[in-house]
Design a binder for these strands. Structure first.
Length: 574
DNA sequence: GCCGTTTTCGGCCCGACTGTTTTCAGTCG
């Protein structure tokens, strides 16, 4: 069973408990356990088999037993029992914005609505607006939400979300009474996909800010508009919330709306243990029931300090043990963009890039890099005009010529060699030996099962000719899932043969992701962060790789391209 | 169902906004 299967069953059980009028806290417990599982990057199946899942966050004796049952039978009796009482489509209804368990239950009890289609029919016949507790406005909102679901579903990749959000932040900062404005929420934490955008503003005239916000040109729909909080649709693509607060409450508000939910749950229990209370208006004495006298609220640093903690970077606020570590003063010094001295995976006009070797070198030098490695495709990638041995040898001479002509940056010879279906490499080993850096990647034959792909990668690593595995899972963000892979086996192989795993920072990939990168680095595998640029403009994507690294708790010492070139091989242990 | 420097029982975050209501339940983050 895959991790997502376990999580899906627990999540479904949580919804069904609520829908059948069960104990809401019991439902919450199932939901919390599901989230804990989704966060676990290792082999959950094996963990359960070893009985080591007992004691995970939110998993007590009962849920631990339930997980064993799911492993053995593929499902859970409680889940099946509740599911038999309601149509399957009802779980889709809970996903709709504006529909919670109570309203879904009412729709089902009174109108027999048990699926998205039936809801559409009920709206069509105007029956929804006649239910008590509903009304014409609610019916309209549901109709719009259904339409939106059909048009687009799910979360927006982080790069696209930032593209939409950054102009809005600039707009808000330019308004008259605004002292500070920031993008909060999961985008600020750097999650690879973003559900909706949250903007926090410190301003002396909240209503003016609110009015300006809801009338921005990018706003295609106003969903809510209050004196301090509004919700709009931006470019028909993303829902965006805004909160305006007094400047002296900016820190606590920014903190509150940055989340995550799990981080806040942990933080509140810590506050409680210290006789404190924390909300969006600040940190208070628990006994202090009004919000006028906060102990801390102006900055996030103040908020954490009031709880006896150092500032915790947003990327770590996922409820993944960051409070414990912060409390012991043991947070890592996280990687920063300025730590990186080189980029070791990029393409030129020799294969499928759009810039020359020289253009790449000049752009990299302008960014302050000390070295780059030119890694064009190998011959199997025919569509990408990949190089055979003969063309590669000539290409190497061209790289040397640019290197000799450039001051202040090393231009090194590499290749992104295809890992073929049988795990052999696409180029002659003797030629590979003459390169400075070899990235091995899978570009074809994705439809293999987990064991076959894993063996394929391990055989490639075993050649001893690779320095790094490029985009290790092959996923394309938002469009392709990538191949199934035994990540623990890959990590063990990389450790044994001293091969780095890449965080591919190109906006279409972000691969490795944060959980896998954390897992690899904790095991001791060297990480390399590359843009896989196909033009001189592509280097700007490096920031996304750094964000993933930070979410993976990585510091500069775990990333090989923070080192000077002459120490990179040593960092690989070679 | 989970959890414990307040607890092995009794809590479980809490405030804004909407839409429907005549004072508030439901939803969201």
């Amino acid at each position: 069973m895959r991790t997502s299967d376990y999580a899906r069953i627990l999540e479904g059980t949580a919804h069904l408990i609520e829908l059948t009028g069960g104990n809401a806290f019991r439902a919450k417990a199932f939901d919390r356990a599901a989230r804990t599982l989704r966060k676990y990057a290792g082999d959950l199946d094996a963990l359960i088999e070893r009985g080591e899942h007992v004691g995970m966050d939110g998993i007590g004796t009962a849920l631990a037993r339930d997980l064993v049952v799911i492993q053995q039978t593929g499902t859970l009796p409680l889940f099946e029992e509740l599911r038999a009482q309601l149509p399957d489509g009802i779980l889709e209804l809970v996903q709709i914005q504006g529909l919670g368990p109570k309203k879904v239950k009412k729709l089902y009890d009174e109108l027999a609505v048990g699926s998205l289609e039936e809801l559409a029919d009920a709206i069509e016949s105007n029956a929804v607006s006649k239910l008590s507790g509903f009304g014409p406005r609610t019916q309209d909102n549901l109709a719009r939400e259904l339409e939106r679901l059909q048009r687009q579903s799910g979360r927006t990749p982080l790069p696209r979300a930032l593209e939409i959000a950054e102009p809005v932040v600039a707009f808000l900062r330019g308004l008259d009474s605004v002292e500070a404005a920031e993008l909060a929420g999961s985008a600020r934490r750097g999650r690879e996909t973003v559900g909706d955008l949250d903007f926090i503003v410190a301003a002396t005239d909240p209503e003016a800010v609110m009015q300006a916000f809801v009338t921005m040109p990018d706003v295609t729909e106003v969903l809510a508009h209050g004196p301090t909080k509004s919700n709009v649709m931006l470019l028909d693509a993303m829902s965006a919330d805004i909160r305006v607060v007094a400047p002296d409450r900016y820190g606590s508000a920014l903190h509150h709306f940055t989340g995550s939910k799990d981080h806040h749950v942990d933080l509140r229990s810590r506050a409680k243990a210290r006789g404190l209370r924390i909300c969006e208006y600040g940190v208070f004495n628990a006994a202090d029931t009004d919000d006028s006298n906060p102990l801390a609220s102006a900055s996030e640093t103040d908020v954490y300090a009031a709880l006896g903690l150092p500032f915790i970077p947003p990327e770590l606020r996922e409820g993944g043990g960051e409070l414990d570590r912060a409390g012991r003063g043991a947070l890592p010094r996280l990687l920063e963009l300025s730590d990186l001295r080189g980029d070791m995976h990029m393409h030129t006009t020799a294969s499928d890039g759009r810039s020359s070797i020289e253009e790449m070198a000049k752009a990299a030098k302008a960014l302050g890099y000390a070295y780059i490695v030119i890694t064009d495709h190998s011959k199997s990638s025919v569509i990408a005009n990949g190089l055979d041995e003969e063309r590669l040898l000539r290409h190497m001479d061209a790289i040397d010529a640019v290197d000799a002509a450039m001051d202040g940056i090393r231009v090194l010879k590499g290749i992104e060699v295809d890992i073929l279906r049988d795990g052999t490499l696409d180029l002659d080993h003797a030629v590979l030996d003459r390169l400075d850096f070899v990235v091995g990647s899978i570009h074809a034959g994705f439809r293999m099962d987990r064991a076959t792909v894993t063996a394929r990668l391990l055989r490639a690593i075993g050649t001893g000719k690779l320095h790094a595995i490029g985009h290790p899972t092959g996923r394309k963000l938002g469009s392709r899932d990538g191949y199934e892979l035994d990540m623990e086996a890959l990590i063990a192989g990389c450790l044994e043969h001293r091969v780095a795993l890449e965080i591919n920072a190109s906006t279409g990939r972000l691969d490795l992701n944060d959980t896998h990168a954390r897992m690899a680095a904790e095991a001791g595998v060297p990480i390399v962060i590359n843009t896989d640029s196909h033009s001189a403009g592509g280097f700007t994507q490096m920031g996304f790789g750094v964000t993933i690294a930070r979410r993976a708790w990585l510091g500069p010492e775990q990333v090989i391209n923070t080192r000077p070139w002459d120490q990179v091989m040593a960092a690989l242990g070679r």
